[in-house]
Design a protein around this nucleic acid. Structure first.
Length: 926
RNA sequence: GCGGGGGUGGCCCAGCCAGGUCAAAGGCGAUGGGCUUAGGACCCAUUCUCGUAGGAGUGCGAGGGUUCGAAUCCCUCCCCCCGCACCA
């Protein structure tokens, strides 16, 4: 029987059989350890890209690996089905968002199925289903009851292109996260979730997560906890008190002015009708013209102006002038700062610019600071001066003491401040979850009652491209107030789609719940997600929101889970080289080069690796991979190319060679070699050793998620197996080796391995096989040493043949070192551990019966001291080495195709034999 | 500027946490040989330098240090990537 490797045939076959047997269906089973493996909720674009392919190849391999290891695995898939692309398609192409999205879901699902991913499709969910989004509304209302949802007028980020507001997290470098348009500031009434209430827990519970350090750091920075003190500054002639936040209360005696954010509402009142009004308005306008990103760049010039007001320093009672400045951010702290030019660089620059006094209050231990000689602020540690009763204190101690004093005189208190803002969830778009609120002229904003959920998305809407389409549906808008029954209108904002993805992982555990979003019992079995896999781009956005939701859902009693994702893997980018002009210092899009030269400068361009992107034209469609080489080859290539966290470089040659090696492996694994034997010799022992070594190494790598390294170790087994198959084989050992290889490879190339399993006479699926267990006695230190010895010996023989230009060796004689040399090696290791002194070691050696070999001992000692690693780390003994060499004679014979003879050094007169050392037999080639 | 991750042989990529078995796995590419009508595929060998016996030299971004011994540990510096960035 000759079977061709035909992925087009075997892949659909196994996909069908898996489906038919429902073998990926997950059911709670407390007798088995559970494992929840999850990839980030994908947006259903019409086709897969390389990033998806990589994401799923990783996740599926882990899920399959865990199943083989006896875990009860939950590995689901669903679709983040709301969002702008569908709505934009509706505007441009007049297609219903729902129809558009559902057809995308079908398309992408089809591709996922072609990849052979082992999802439990019975749990598939998508946010656009009423039965899903109604729970968004349910949760919204629960949060509302708890005070976690609120509506407020606020200056918010507006994306003019998406025609909607954005949360702070969705603004990247002042651009929209989705479309990269520059974000504008607008003032609007919006709905928020109180994520800030969880700031502290979100921060502290990061510590216990097995997440990449970079992601944890990003979240820590984003939450931005800082400990400090609130200090109240009274404003002269106004009766107002401004609570300023500072981390440096130790410098309060050095405050010489205050700076407010120009948009601070008090400023407008203060300048009204004064001579400062006109200038202030000009200043405010100029600041607002700049985008926020430019404005807050660190190297930006510190601009500002005096606005005619004074404040009182609460500790010195000095009157200090009040300024507005472009560098103060309204949203942070009190939107105003106390300025200490001597000890804060920004304040220093501002003071120089505006000729304000600099007052030193902290002095370094070894020198005196003089304000007029300072060229920058002194921000290091020091001792307090000019600070009244606090003079002489270490500034670190002063922070606490001054804080305490302020508290006593009721002009301040210690506090904690966060950069994290509440989560703005309103969106002025159609294709999302309607916010279940009714606005009544009399009763205000009234929540829809739970029994009336879901508030369905209406179909009678118009997509004009301007304004919220929901507002065009009179059937939707017009309703009655649940409280007073009067005519009222519905809220037209929909929820940020990040709400959908903040709890979908709970829904997978309990897709068919009745009265609540999800049932407690299955959730407590499956959650938390043991392994979450996705791109780094969600380091803050999705991962922070999902953590917040998990905690808030816990607090409304839906679960007892604190953290959603125990272990996180952020896969690297998929790159491909693209034309890059070194002179212009940029990548060249297809229209910017011709032939081999850059259009801009006319010079030759080079190639450099870049993230696959449409604009650079270096995208490879995974479909080509799948169509030409099959799912297994695509999966293998993508996992073998690079470890999951690292970047993956696309290469055309790579996929070709992957396909060939799969083909080769397939033939090797299904065919029993012709020449069998019942005996066991060194070759059989060797392949057994390699088999178990592969199990050990691949298992270790799988656990570490180093899938590339795991595959490398399995392929070594395949290679050795291939060599072995050309000699007479022991059937049992051969079978153990090839079935081990098949099972080890099955998480990566499942279809091929199923086919092998079947063709080698197994009943049932390979996915129901057991992950092999490494026999430690086979891969003992002694055995590793032995087989290394053989490979070193072969290398040495080859080296000699090469250097001595021997064309074809006729006989190779190998001499094991004399017995006393083994004793010497051991003694040397003992003594060397005690001292490195040659004299002392020699003395110790000479006090034994080795004395009679004094001269040789001295020579060998010289060698050993020069390279202590020469003394073998395992002691085989002369007999052990000699008999091992005899055993492997046939391996050497087949390698070198000549007679191999073995001797003991003692039995030989050959000069060269005297050079033998333990673990390093002498070699003579004729 | 701060934080995180990197820099390994022609290229990609392991090794570094637990120093010696490391001239450094694996893949790609290249060269030679076998096979073949030829090419491809496949198989074998070679692929830092020198070397007619397993050696020597150089070497893991650069420079120092620790150690009998450093790709691996410590210090300083350079470069690349990714986040954050006047956060009071």
């Amino acid at each position: 029987m000759s079977h061709k490797y035909n992925p087009k045939e075997i892949e659909p076959k196994w996909q069908y059989l898996w489906e038919e047997s429902k073998c990926f269906k997950a059911t709670e089973d407390i007798s088995k350890p559970k494992y929840y493996c999850l990839e980030m909720y994908p947006y259903p674009s019409a086709s897969l890209h390389m990033g998806h392919l990589r994401n799923y190849a990783i996740g599926d391999s882990i899920a399959r690996y865990k199943r083989l290891n006896g875990f009860n695995v939950l590995y689901p898939m669903g679709y983040d089905a709301f969002g702008l692309p569908a709505e934009n398609a509706a505007i441009k192409q007049k297609i219903e968002p729902e129809a558009w999205t559902r057809s995308n879901i079908n398309a992408i699902k089809h591709q996922q199925q072609e990849m052979g991913l082992s999802y439990d499709w019975s749990r598939q969910i998508q946010s656009l289903d009423e039965d899903y989004y109604k729970w968004n509304q349910w949760i919204f209302l629960k949060f509302y009851e708890k005070g976690l949802t609120y509506r407020e007028k606020a200056v918010i980020n507006w994306c003019p292109d998406c025609n909607t507001v954005l949360a702070n997290e969705q603004v990247i470098n002042n651009r929209c996260w989705r479309c990269s348009s520059i974000v504008e500031q607008r003032e609007l009434e919006q709905w928020f979730f109180r994520i800030r209430d969880y700031a502290d827990e979100l921060l502290t519970s990061l510590d216990d997560l097995d997440w990449p350090e970079s992601v944890k750091t990003m979240q820590r920075n984003w939450i931005g906890r800082s400990e400090g003190t609130i200090i109240n500054f009274n404003i002269v002639n106004s009766g107002e008190t401004i609570p300023i936040f500072t981390t440096r209360p130790d410098t309060v005696f050095g405050v010489t002015f205050m700076v407010f954010a120009p948009e601070h509402p008090l400023i407008k009142d203060w300048v009204e009708g004064t001579k400062y009004q006109a200038a202030f308005e000009t200043f405010l306008a100029s600041v607002q013209q700049e985008d926020k990103f430019q404005r807050t760049a660190a190297d930006k010039e510190k601009k500002g102006m005096f606005i005619g007001k004074y404040a009182i320093n609460p500790l010195t009672n000095d009157e200090i002038p009040v300024y507005v400045g472009n560098f103060v951010i309204y949203e942070y702290g009190a939107g105003a700062v106390m300025a200490v030019p001597a000890h804060d660089q920004r304040d220093f620059e501002f003071a120089k610019e505006h000729d304000l006094p600099v007052k030193v209050v902290i002095r370094p231990r070894d020198k005196v600071l003089s304000p007029d000689k300072m060229t920058e602020a002194y921000i290091e540690k020091g001792i307090l001066v000019n600070s009244g009763e606090f003079d002489g204190l270490d500034n670190h101690d002063a922070i606490m003491k001054i804080s305490k004093k302020l508290e006593e005189i009721k002009l301040g208190k210690s506090t904690v401040n966060y950069k994290l803002r509440d989560w703005l969830i309103s969106r002025q778009r159609y294709w999302g979850t309607p916010i279940p609120i009714i606005h009544c002229d009399k009763c205000g904003s009234v929540p829809v009652s739970f029994k009336d959920l879901p508030v369905k998305l209406p179909k009678d809407v118009e997509f004009t491209g301007s304004g919220n389409p929901l507002a065009t549906s009179s059937s939707f808008i017009n309703t009655t107030c649940p409280e007073c029954g009067a005519p009222a209108h519905r809220e037209t904002d929909t929820m940020d789609t990040f709400v959908d993805s903040s709890w979908y992982f709970f829904k997978y555990c309990s897709p068919f719940s009745g009265q609540v979003p999800f049932d407690k019992q299955p959730v407590s079995y499956w959650m938390p997600v043991d392994q979450y896999i996705g791109g780094i781009e969600h380091a803050i956005l999705h991962l922070l929101y999902a953590r917040f939701f998990t905690k808030a859902l816990r607090d409304i009693g839906l679960s007892e889970i604190d953290e959603p994702f125990s272990r996180l893997l952020c896969q690297g980018m998929v790159n491909k080289e693209a034309p890059y002009c070194e002179l212009c210092n940029r990548f060249l899009p297809p229209e910017d080069y011709e032939g081999s030269t850059c259009n801009a400068c006319g010079n030759k361009y080079t190639h450099k690796s870049a993230k696959m992107s449409k604009s650079l034209g270096n995208v490879i469609d995974p479909r080509i991979l799948m169509d030409n080489y099959g799912a297994d080859a695509a999966r293998f290539f993508i996992l073998f190319g690079s470890n999951p966290e690292r970047e993956l470089e696309w290469s055309d040659a790579g996929i070709e060679s992957v396909y060939k090696s799969l083909e080769k492996s397939f033939h090797l694994l299904i065919k029993m070699p012709g020449s069998l034997k019942d005996t066991i010799d060194a070759r059989d022992n060797y392949i057994k050793f390699i088999t178990h070594k592969s199990i050990r190494d691949a298992t270790y790598n799988f656990e570490e998620l180093k899938l590339k390294d795991a595959i490398t170790h399995i392929m070594i087994l395949i290679d050795e197996l291939s060599t072995y198959s050309k000699t007479p084989i022991n059937k049992d050992i051969y079978n153990e080796a090839r079935m081990t290889a098949a099972v080890l490879l099955s998480p990566v190339i499942p279809h091929l391995c199923e086919e092998v399993w079947e063709l080698t006479g197994h009943d049932g699926f390979i996915i129901r096989a057991r992950w092999p267990i490494c026999d430690e006695t086979v891969v003992s230190e002694m055995n590793e040493f032995k087989w290394d010895l053989l490979s070193d010996l072969s290398d040495d023989i080859r080296e000699i043949i090469k250097v001595a230009r021997i064309t074809s060796p006729k006989r190779i004689r190998i001499y094991s070192a004399a017995g006393w040399k083994f004793r010497l090696a051991n003694l040397f290791k003992e003594e060397f551990a005690k001292t490195k002194d040659r004299g002392q070691i020699m003395k110790a050696l000479m006090s034994t019966d080795l004395k009679r070999y004094g001269k040789q001992v001295n020579q060998i000692l010289g060698k050993y001291l020069n390279d202590p690693a020469l003394a073998p780390y395992v002691d085989m003994g002369q007999e052990g080495e000699f008999s091992f060499l005899n055993e492997v004679a046939l391996i050497l014979e087949s390698r070198f195709n000549c007679v191999i003879e073995f001797y003991r050094e003692e039995d030989s007169q050959e000069k060269k034999a005297a050079g033998a050392l333990p673990g390093r037999p002498a070699i003579i080639i004729d």
